[in-house]
């Protein structure tokens, strides 16, 4: 489903070159729950940004579901993100002036293939799924961090994306809330066969991942199925 080959990203600051990614080659299959792990500065976020079409690599190829995504125009990339990708950020990144329901429906409202009724049904469904349907008229600031992160997951999956990306979604949460969020990821991966690529540097998260890709200095240092996953 995702084929990445020789992905390289070089940041140039004056005369200094930082190789944030250095020839990463990976295949991710449909339905996988992949954890990208590694020390701080190893290139995890950079990799996720490349896959999420938020930035262009210096070199290499990314193919998602048969599309050479790097060849797309700016507008096409935006539409690709809207129709095919979901993204969860470390800081939830909800629109503060929209209610929970409005935040979740927002990506669906922009799709040409969604009727008003469908949008409501889908939004209700994902809010129910994350257990916050009763808070749908609340503003994000009226929710706890964990609840906000669950809303942001609901927003990311409301359009049933092909791939869901998450960059350290638990970094701002305590262990209990982290578990809740991770369980949610686990469940939607199981129930909806949702492909998930998640970045984490917390060692204990790895019990959730089917497969773990370890990065070090922008290179893949290990990649394999995780026997301890549950």
């Amino acid at each position: 489903m995702i084929q990445i080959s020789d992905l390289t990203k070089i940041y140039r600051m004056g005369t200094v070159e930082v190789r944030a990614l250095d020839g990463v080659t990976l295949d991710i299959a449909k339905g996988e729950f992949v954890g990208i792990m590694g020390a701080s500065g190893s290139g995890k976020t950079t990799l996720l940004h490349m896959l999420g079409l938020l930035d262009d690599p210096t070199k290499g190829k990314i193919n998602i579901e048969g599309t050479d995504v790097l060849a797309l125009s700016d507008y096409e990339k935006t539409m690709f993100r809207l129709y095919k990708l979901g993204y969860v950020f470390q800081d939830y990144a909800l629109v503060p002036d929209l209610t929970v329901m409005e935040n979740v429906s927002l990506p669906a409202m922009l799709r040409k293939d969604r009727s008003e009724e469908q949008i409501r049904k889908d939004s209700d469904f994902v809010l129910e799924r994350i257990g916050l349907l009763d808070r749908c008229d609340h503003l994000p600031r009226e929710l706890s961090g964990g609840q906000q992160q669950r809303v942001s997951i609901a927003r990311a999956i409301v359009n049933k994306p092909d791939i869901l990306f998450a960059d350290e979604p638990c970094a701002n949460l305590d262990t209990e809330n982290s578990r809740m969020v991770l369980d949610l990821f686990h469940d939607i991966n199981e129930e909806m066969k949702q492909t998930i690529v998640m970045v984490s540097h917390e060692d204990w998260h790895k019990e959730y991942f089917h497969r773990i890709v370890r990065l070090k200095d922008g290179k893949v240092v290990s990649d394999g199925t995780n026997p301890s996953a549950h």
Binding site: G52, G86, A93, P96
Partner: peptide, 15 residues
């Protein structure tokens, strides 16, 4: 930042 996020989740710049 919020604008960046909106774009990241597929909201077009015109919007």
């Amino acid at each position: 930042r919020q604008i960046g996020i909106l774009k990241a989740i597929g909201v077009d710049k015109e919007v």
